[in-house]
Design a protein around this nucleic acid. Structure first.
Lengths: 369, 369
DNA sequence: TTGTAAGCGTTATCAA
DNA sequence: TTGATAACGCTTACAA
């Protein structure tokens, strides 16, 4: 790699006549053209170039032309750090999601990115791995960038993380919580839905189909609090109906395998008594569905199954997997809107409850053969 | 939201006795504690605090203690923009991948992130949507952050993007290309493998099983050049064997549906003559596999199928999907190592060909019943 | 061990 | 319409 820093001679005055010719030997800097380089080449001062870049109309036409040439000749690209430092505003949104690999959050990030793109904001992304300590750590790192807004997932944070978020808001940085809808006094704007309610709806779906012995397979990921809330909602609704619930937690590892394992545990523990099971997510449910098929267990005849997330694979299987379709993309896109609004108006954006829907498919509702 | 900027009185000298008391009314700044605030509180100057933060050992114990207190009292978090601007080095790696949703690149990003984490570097991420223009645009935005290294996907870039990358390298910024292995003179460090070779291996696998009428279903995503290279490699190898090839392109949209559609097209176009088909990725192949099952077509008896990517779902289906397992995570992790090495040594890191493997499963190799 | 001075590359403010 | 000047918050270089 050529490591020689390009000489900065261009930055010296064009005709350093009178005094001694001082060849500036910079010991700092990134070795890239600066506003000053462009200005010197165009025969103006840097502030004029700066103005041209932000509002081309306000510089005289001939000047603008010279600047345009100098810009393309130098290949100048503005230094954002310097810009943000000087202007005190960053046009950068920091976002924290649990993870990106094979996850429900990838589309949320896409929605966020799309929503911000249009407004010329950039996205600074980090993953927490469903850990609050990790969230706090990442938050500290992200705040170092002085983002114009902060987006986090869920409403539960460590005490210190909460402090960081409150401080940020006090300093005028909007804070938005994704994938949740459980407003409290003084809380941050929430864009999402109530997971306990989803859990209840899953229970209602199964009970309304006549099932009296139902099970819930919760996520093995300790930090997946929203899954646990769905579990609680499900359990409450089942108990309200005067029924008992078989509840178990899926193992970690490949979620399809975990789902298969959960189905085996279920049959072992409960024998054939359980007639319907709800899962924390579609991957677990698909695993169980495939395991049922492999072992000749009739779905939904002997066991009805449903998931959460509406991943593409669920509709492809036969029978199709009944599931909850959450507004994956919309959560991100609406968060972008809310955040832009908060920045514009200087007040917290209102909470936005977003609709989800239950998709009944063949894994719970037998189709006429 | 409380918008009042906190007053900066703390920044005035503690006892502004002699002259007039000037209450500084800042019109800029982020409204967050600065090094100066901490220093004033600790009764030292800002440089001492700065030093303490980077090398706690070199300040005197009692001073350190006062600084520590002041830090926690103010909740100070360093401003990275100012830091990088002053030091001329950024500790930030910019990475460009085609996409993150349901993609093979999510794990690569995870590997990159893990590899950088340990070295205290941060990741600035953007998606190109498999478009070169978008890549160029994103590259421009990312370079604005003056990253210490740049990571892109693949070896094909627009002319202007190539210029940007070359300039970056000339300025001492390592550039790394992921998921490819096709070194040219003066090219950038590549971490990945040769896709044409993978295509040939897929052909060899099917031919060695005795198939004489084979098909390749390419990705409908125009910008997925690596898939097209696998297609070319496959086609070459088939023609080398003196055989003809049925070649088609999957439609866009849900990849499972696209795979189903492709299978239907295949049967329509080629009748029953094709006995084996390779797909650009596992999702397409899984769709085809599910379609085959739905229509009572025996796999691999009447038609053998294979994919690329080794997505978790492939092994779950019955028969399991034969596929190529690429080093998804390793590509990211090794890229991090290469880049850190390049930064350390000041020379380009060597290319790193990474191994992939062919996973024969039931969709091509009939298991003894 | 601590401080002073200068500068990183840009923008806000005011003057011309 | 353009420029001079002073920040922004931090670090390097050098002095004490």
């Amino acid at each position: 790699m050529t490591r020689a820093r390009p000489s900065r001679n261009t930055r010296a005055t064009e005709a350093p006549a009178d005094d001694a010719v001082i060849v500036r030997q910079p010991r700092r800097g990134h070795g890239r053209p600066t506003l000053q380089d462009v200005a010197t080449l165009a025969g103006v001062t840097s502030i004029t170039v700066s103005r041209f870049l932000r509002e081309p109309a306000i510089v005289a036409a001939p000047t603008a032309e010279r600047i345009r040439e100098a810009l393309s000749e130098t290949g100048y690209l503005p230094n954002r750090q310097a810009g943000h430092l000087a202007s005190g505003g960053s046009q950068v949104v920091a976002a924290l999601v649990p993870n990106l690999v094979q996850s429900i959050f990838a589309e949320t990030v896409q929605g966020l990115s799309d929503g911000l793109q249009a407004a010329g904001h950039e996205l600074l992304l980090a993953a927490t791995g469903y850990s609050m300590e990790r969230e706090e750590e990442q938050l500290r790192a992200l705040i170092g960038w002085r983002p114009s807004a902060i987006v986090v997932t869920g409403r539960h944070h460590s005490a210190d993380a909460l402090l960081l978020l409150r401080n940020a808001r006090r300093a005028g940085t909007p804070v938005i919580e994704l994938w949740d809808q459980h407003p409290e006094d003084g809380g941050f704007t929430q864009i999402g839905f109530d997971h306990a309610e989803v859990g209840r709806a899953m229970a209602v779906h199964l009970l309304s189909l006549g099932h009296r012995q139902v099970a819930y397979v919760d996520s093995g990921v300790v930090g997946d609090l929203r899954a646990h809330e769905r579990c609680t909602g499900f359990a409450d609704r089942v108990r309200d109906a005067g029924l008992s619930l078989v509840s178990l937690t899926a193992p970690l590892g490949d979620p399809f395998d975990a789902g298969r394992q959960a189905l085996r545990s279920l049959r072992q523990a409960a024998g054939g008594s359980v007639t319907a099971a709800a899962f924390a997510n579609d991957q677990l449910a698909c695993g169980a569905l495939l395991e049922a098929q492999a072992t000749g267990l009739s779905v939904p005849g002997e066991l009805a199954l449903m998931g959460f997330g509406d991943f593409p694979i669920g509709r492809q299987l036969n029978p199709g997997l009944s599931t909850i379709q959450p507004p994956r993309y919309a959560i991100g896109f609406e968060a972008a809107q809310a955040l832009l609004q908060a920045l514009r108006d200087g007040v917290d954006a209102p909470h936005r409850p977003l609709p989800w829907s239950l998709m009944p498919r063949g894994s719970t509702v037998a189709t006429p053969a």
